[in-house]
Amino acid sequence: MTSTGPVGSEDLVRRAVAAFNSGDHAQATDLCELGLKRHPGDPALCHLLAAVLFARSDLPAARARIEASLASRPDNVPALILAGRIARAEGRFDAALQMLDRAARQSSRVEILLEQARTFDQASDATAAGAAWDRVLQSDPKSVEALARLGRLAWERGAPAEAEGFLVRAVAGGGHPAQWFDLGLVRQDMRKFEAAAEAYRQVLAKSPDAAEAAANLGVVLQEMGDLDRAMAAYSQAYRLSPSTFGIIAMALTSAPSGRLWLDEEALRRLLEQFEENA
């Protein structure tokens, strides 16, 4: 229960931060609102309440509070970064970049570069995103997020060897399933089928419900001439998501080592049979 005794804004901020960090967003909100009743327009309380509202996905209210905070402290870097995040979440990319540019004039924090790169990504500006992620990597050569994004962007622009280099570095510490999946796609395009199969197996080890990875594993195993294991992978994909059937049927009938299936139901039964015998 929130105390109503006399208390300064700094103490309220401290208690609200503790509540927020513990996951009690309701109490954090109550404490911030109590503080703002006693200290109207307090920039720290406005900033913190904006962060709480942002975490609760109340974007218009979060924007109003961070704008109130910036009205008192227009050059506060953490507030500018939060304002940029809120604007990006609302799809106001130009506004987000303006806030982040203001923050960058005050500080060289890598966090600002990250937010700029994420904003260009979300705005689907691949050229600007690539340059922004390069700046992140220059500041933090071990940034897994930058390595993964640069790898994906390189693959999308048709530079698979460059993409593979970035993605291999991204997964070196274990890797996220999405990063391994991208590495599988790149190696599959390069016809490095054994390496692609290993990447897709890593996806499935980390995310056993990844139907697309199972289907792609089947494709590369089929390309390697291992039809039995390919069928097992296809069966796994079909079990996880029946919508993969079209991809499976196309792969089986188009690859040199595939089979011709005139009866769709017969293929479905075979996939189910592999599932039962797995």
Rank of each mutant, 00 (worst) to 15 (best):
A211V: 09
K206R: 15
A215K: 05
M250T: 14
A249C: 08
L221I: 05
M250Y: 07
F193P: 00
Q202M: 14
T244K: 10
Y238R: 10
L227E: 05
A210S: 08
G218S: 12
Q202E: 13
A199R: 10
P208K: 02
E212S: 03
E198W: 08
K206Q: 15
M231G: 05
E223T: 12
E198G: 08
I247M: 12
G246Y: 07
S235C: 10
P242E: 07
E198S: 12
G225D: 01
E194N: 13
A213M: 07
L240K: 05
S207R: 15
Y234A: 02
D228R: 02
A195M: 13
A211K: 08
M224N: 01
E194W: 14
A211E: 03
V219D: 00
L227P: 02
L240D: 01
L227M: 09
A197N: 09
A237V: 06
D226H: 00
M231N: 07
I248Y: 12
Q202G: 00
A197L: 13
D209N: 05
R229Q: 10
R239W: 12
E198K: 12
A237H: 05
Q222C: 06
E223M: 15
M250C: 11
L240F: 02
E212D: 08
Q202H: 13
V203A: 11
N216T: 04
S243P: 07
A249S: 13
A197T: 11
A210Y: 07
Q222I: 06
G225Y: 08
G218F: 14
A210I: 03
L221S: 11
A215R: 10
A214F: 07
D226P: 01
L227C: 03
Y200G: 08
N216H: 13
Y238K: 08
A215Y: 11
E194S: 13
V203T: 06
I248T: 05
M231S: 02
D209K: 10
Q222A: 10
T244F: 02
A195C: 03
F193C: 09
A210C: 04
A232H: 08
G225F: 04
G218R: 06
P208I: 05
A214I: 06
V220S: 14
E223Q: 15
A196R: 01
A232G: 04
A205D: 13
G225Q: 01
A215W: 09
D226K: 03
S235D: 02
A196K: 00
E223H: 11
A213Q: 03
A214M: 08
A195G: 05
E212L: 10
A232W: 08
F245A: 05
Y234L: 02
L217M: 13
I248V: 10
L221K: 11
L217K: 13
